[in-house]
């Protein structure tokens, strides 16, 4: 008898916990959405390594926004040579987002960040 009471009490406690957890999750989601609506976002860059070389992921509010496995703007699927290069370009993307400009990278940006650009990266191939 007492074990049944224990079971019922346990279930009730768990249900309450489940609802509370779901409620907190919902609140968090709504907070993230309201922050997004206000233009306030948490942006981070994460270096990634793939078969192509180094790249980066940009996470906004913990969600993957950009996954850049190869050097942006130029021809070819060539990863960055080093982790530092990938992070440098990723940081440029983050600073663009934080300054309310677009997370795009120009060939000029790549040159300024010391990313080696070959002539074949932009010339039209025949």
């Amino acid at each position: 008898m007492s074990s049944r009471k224990f079971l019922i009490a346990g279930v009730i406690v768990l249900v309450v916990i489940a609802f509370y957890a779901a409620y907190i999750g919902q609140q968090k989601r709504e907070f993230a959405l309201s922050q997004q609506a206000k233009g306030m976002v948490y942006v981070e860059v994460l270096p990634i390594q793939t078969a192509l070389g180094w790249g980066y992921e940009i996470h906004v509010d913990g969600k993957s926004y950009i996954r850049q496995e190869f050097v942006p703007a130029v021809f070819g699927r060539r990863g960055f040579d080093t982790k530092e290069q990938a992070v440098a370009v990723g940081n440029k993307v983050v600073s663009n987002i934080n300054s309310k400009s677009s997370p795009a990278i120009s060939i000029k940006d790549l040159e300024e960040l010391g990313i080696p650009i070959k002539a074949s990266d932009t010339l039209q191939k025949k």
């Binding site: 950009i66 996954r67 850049q68 496995e69 190869f70 942006p72 703007a73 130029v74 021809f75 795009a104």
Partner: peptide
């Protein structure tokens, strides 16, 4: 996030 973006060649 519904979509993930990457910048490709110009």
């Amino acid at each position: 996030s519904s979509l993930t973006w990457a910048q490709v060649a110009n």
